[in-house]
């Protein structure tokens, strides 16, 4: 890197400033900064308000919602919405409170989502890590060429593969099974391989050579050295994969037809088709969306820093 950073439209600044100069921390509250903060806060409110509104609606009773559409607090506080989601109300009770009365097997959908997201995450990350290891630490002739072919698949829009993949799943007799939903995601994504390869390449060769001289095999190096030393990136990619799998809608919608394999997103998506005649059960629905989003929100609370810092171009460049 050169120090002469030429910036179009600006006179050269001379060599007086360097990275070592401590930045001025004392900042006055200028009008500009105040405006900036106001804009920031408005954007934050837009971002966060829907979450609050979900909670507020979920904790209200349906009948009261119609009368008090604008109250900022829950109206006629009730756990009814959540009780309906988890099937803790009798049919009569549910209908009386504005629910559809239909038994929604929420636990099952939740279970299906957990199985699908966990299965995809564990297999995909493990297989991608294996491939990333082969592409970063093993010595073989065609390595870079084969890796190039893998990179090509980054260019294939997922959407284009959905129809043919559905037909394949159908031919394998896996339609309406959880395995059918998981299968295309089980083996790898080009991004996961790419992302992990970046980190595996940076593990120091000295430690590896020491292990090899001690008689460890390359397989052992992978399990006992590379994986433990890359726990951070592996956790990051796992979380991202889990979130993606959990939130996926289009693919499971294609593959699943019955409760057997229905995941949460698909079950929620059906909502508009099965509203009771009296109008939608908004409080029940918002309770359901909250419960559906909860695992991701919890995951996020624990790993926020890791997720936030992983978003950038470290993996893409």
């Amino acid at each position: 890197m050169t120090d002469t950073t030429a910036v179009p439209g600006l006179a050269p600044a001379g060599a007086t400033t360097g990275d070592q100069v401590p930045r001025q921390r004392r900042r006055r509250m200028s009008p500009g900064r105040i405006v900036a903060w106001v804009v920031m806060i408005v954007l934050l409110i837009i971002t966060l308000f829907p979450f609050y509104w979900m909670l507020r609606t979920a904790l209200s009773s349906n009948s009261a919602l119609y009368a008090n559409a604008t109250s900022w607090l829950p109206v006629d506080f009730s756990w009814g919405g959540f009780e309906r989601v988890f099937g803790m109300q009798s049919t009569e009770e549910a209908i009386a409170q504005g629910g559809s009365g239909a038994s929604i097997d929420f636990w099952r959908y939740l279970g299906n989502s957990v199985v699908v997201a966990t299965g995809i995450t564990v297999c995909q990350v493990f297989f991608s890590a294996m491939a990333a290891y082969a592409f970063s630490r093993l010595h073989w002739k065609a390595r870079d060429r084969v890796f190039g072919i893998f990179l090509l698949s980054l260019m294939v829009p997922v959407i284009f593969t959905l129809l043919p993949n559905f037909l394949l799943i159908r031919e394998l007799g896996l339609v309406d099974t959880l395995l059918g939903i998981m299968l295309p995601g089980l083996f790898m994504t080009p991004f996961a391989i790419f992302f992990l390869r970046q980190f595996f390449m940076n593990v120091s060769t000295e430690v590896e050579e020491a292990a090899l001289i001690d008689g460890a095999s390359k397989v052992r190096v992978f399990f006992a050295l590379i994986i433990p030393m890359s726990v951070g990136p592996i956790a990051t990619i796992s979380i991202l994969t889990y979130i993606t799998a959990w939130n996926d809608y289009f693919w499971p919608l294609m593959v699943s037809y019955s409760d057997e394999s229905r995941v949460l997103t698909v079950a929620l998506g059906n909502f508009t088709e099965q509203s009771p005649q009296t109008g939608p059960d908004w409080s029940g629905l918002m309770a359901a969306t909250l419960v559906a989003a909860l695992p991701m929100i919890l995951l996020f609370l624990v790993f926020a820093k890791r997720i936030v810092n992983s978003i950038g171009f470290s993996g893409i460049k």
């Binding site: 971002t47 998506g269 991701m296 996020f300 926020a304």
Partner: peptide, 12 residues
């Protein structure tokens, strides 16, 4: 983190 929150919920 707050800014990223909506990204965590599904499109649905």
């Amino acid at each position: 983190s707050l800014v990223l929150a909506p990204y965590l919920v599904s499109n649905v």
